[in-house]
Structure formats: C-alpha cells, structure tokens
C-alpha cells in the first residue's frame, strides 16, 4: 500500500514511539507528541502500538491513496474530508484506491495522527523511524513530508479483510459505526496540567511559586516539537544562580532568565541548564501537545505518587481499550447492517 502526498501542510512528519538509548550521545527522543492518540491510531488499524504513523500539524495536509488502505485518524480534529464528506475519526476507515483525503482547518487541537494498517515503512535509524528534523535523521530522509512524496506501508491482512467486506462499492471510503474516541475529551483550548516539583523548585521565590499555580499561562506562537514557550506570571529565583546542565525529560518545566517557563517536549535537547520548577505528569503530556498557540493552561500540583498512580491507571484503561478494539476489528464491516 502506498500514499502520495498532495499538499505538505504546515508540518507533517513520520513518528513512532521515539528513540531510546541515544540520549548519552545528545540525540533527542523525538516520537509522537501525543502518545495517547498515537497508540490508539495504531491499534485501530490492527497495528501493534509501536508502528510509524504520520503526525499532522494544524492544517493544509492532503494525500491520495494509491491502493485500498485501512486508515485511522486520531488526536486533533483538523476536519478530515474525502469526496466532499467528513471522515469520522477514532475508528478504522477503509479508503478506496484513488480517493483523496484533505485536512481543511483545525477545529480542536493541534496534532492529528494518521495510521495506516501495516505501518509507514521507512528505514529504522538508531532504533526508531521517528523524524528528528534538527539532526536530519529518521522518517523520510530526515525531513518533513513534501508534496509529491510517496510513502509505503507494511503488509497488512486487515486491509484485505476490510476491502473485501466493503459494501459501499462506489463510495470513496467506508467507516465502521463504532468509535474509540475518549469519553472525556482531553483536547481543549484551556487545560489543567498536573505537575510535581522540579529539581530546583525550592530555589524559586515563594511569591513565584504561588503565581505559578494560580496564574494562567498562554502558549506562545514560537512553540514547537522541542518545547512549549509560555507567557504569564514571571517567575524569579530567590537569588540568581548558575546551574550545571543535567539530563532532562519530556515535561520538564524550565525557567530561563526572563522568567517565562518553557515545557520541554519530544524534540527537546538531552541536557538542560535552566532551573526546573516543575515536572508534568506523563499522562498530561498529550494535553499540552494538543494546545495551539494562544491556548492556555494552569498548573495543578500533585504528589509524585499521584503522578505514578495516574500513569498506571491509564496503562490499565488502555489495555482494556486495546482488547475491545481488537475484538471489534475482527468483526470488520460485518455488524454494519
């Protein structure tokens, strides 16, 4: 199965779970920014949770399916359309050969994930297919997709099953009626983000700590896959201090000299030398990934054990969801009439 990129969009890259084990060489983790939508996109087309998918940003991307393809779209609603019809999200959709899928405009969220049954087939670089543009590695030739690019997907038995069961022979696509959309939508323009203390939390002035939790922070336009730059109450240290750079993680909230926090994301540098006021709970990283410039967030303090518990609860909920998706996939289109 292959697809052809018709319009590149703002930023479209191939991403998977990211690179592990190369941080010591200064290589970023990369990978899908919204790990939740990423995993679901894969499961919905019968992939394991670690295949490469497309991460679409904001708007303008369109593609043509060169063969029948089993696809799912999750994450941000960027108004996917095909043949003049809205394509439903969070479910398997069979696109017929030659049909064109376009993402018209953002309705909610910033990043959409498009998975194809079999996974996007690009070379593995340092254990991952994720695009890391800054170093020019991974994905398609280490860069964002361009108009005219052809991408191939791995072999998939599911596509053939759905293809032969497809009843609407003349329609450009057919979707199942069920969906795995989250019951409580996590994509919003204003977010509550749960955090634990950062390493240098105690070095900040107590007024700054209060403002950090009480204030509203807005996402600046220069935010990207490296980090989300925020504007809001200025945060100050008790006394100016130089810090020695140390290994940081996704969700580290660091505060440079101007007092405006930055949340480090997937393409972050491996080491950071700014004081760290907080650390975002891993389960809330997708909420940040889906914020658009101008969107806002407030920080809510939780304990480290709560952060761990939230993570484990989500793992369990996702395992159950994966089982349900697998059962429904076996039915294909057969329960549809």
């Amino acid at each position: 199965m292959s697809i052809e990129v018709l319009k590149r969009g703002l930023l479209t890259t191939v991403q998977d779970m990211g690179r592990t084990g190369y941080g010591k060489y200064g290589v970023s983790t990369s990978g899908a920014m919204d790990g939740y939508a990423y995993k679901l996109a894969n499961w919905l087309v019968g992939n394991s949770g670690s295949e490469a998918v497309l991460e679409l940003t904001w708007s303008g991307f369109s593609l043509r399916f060169l063969q029948d393809s089993l696809v799912s779209i999750t994450g941000a609603d960027l108004s996917p359309e095909c043949g003049g019809l809205t394509v439903p999200m969070w479910r398997p959709v069979l696109f017929r050969e030659g049909s064109e899928l376009a993402f018209r405009r953002p309705v909610s969220g910033s990043r959409s994930y498009l998975a194809i049954s079999g996974g996007i087939d690009v070379p593995v670089v340092m254990g991952s297919k994720s695009t890391y543009i800054r170093a020019g590695i991974g994905g398609l030739n280490g860069r964002a997709l361009e108009s005219g690019d052809i991408l191939h997907a791995g072999k998939s038995g599911r596509t053939a099953e759905f293809s032969s069961a497809c009843q609407q022979k003349d329609a450009p696509f057919q979707a199942v009626r069920w969906s795995a959309a989250p019951r409580r939508p996590y994509i919003q323009a204003n977010q509550i983000v749960r955090v634990t203390h950062g390493r240098q939390f105690a070095d900040f002035r107590s007024e700054s700590i209060d403002q950090f939790y009480q204030g509203v922070y807005t996402v600046k336009p220069e935010s990207d896959r490296m980090g989300f730059r925020l504007s809001g109450p200025t945060l100050a240290l008790e006394a100016p201090k130089e810090y020695i750079s140390e290994g940081v993680v996704s969700g580290t909230v660091q505060v440079p000299a101007d007092g405006q926090p930055i949340i480090l994301m997937a393409d972050r540098q491996t080491l950071g030398g700014y004081p760290k006021i907080a650390q975002v709970a891993t389960v809330d990283l997708p909420r940040i990934a889906q914020l658009a410039p101008g969107g806002s967030l407030r920080f809510l303090e939780i304990t480290p054990s709560e952060s761990e518990m939230l993570y484990m609860q989500q793992v369990q909920a996702m395992r159950a969801l994966q089982c349900m998706i697998n059962c429904k996939l076996k039915e294909g289109f057969h329960d549809e009439d």
Binding site: T20, G23, K24, I244, E246, G247, V248, V249, T270
Partner: peptide, 18 residues
C-alpha cells in the same frame, strides 16, 4: 530500565513504569 544520560555532575536514569 530504558537508558541513562550522564552530564557533568549528574546521571539521569529513565525507566518504564509499566
């Protein structure tokens, strides 16, 4: 254990909770 990243005076250890 996932990986560890050495810096000047520290070592950051990354792990998979699950």
């Amino acid at each position: 254990f996932l990986e560890c990243v050495p810096s000047f005076t520290t070592l950051t250890v990354y792990y998979d909770l699950e």
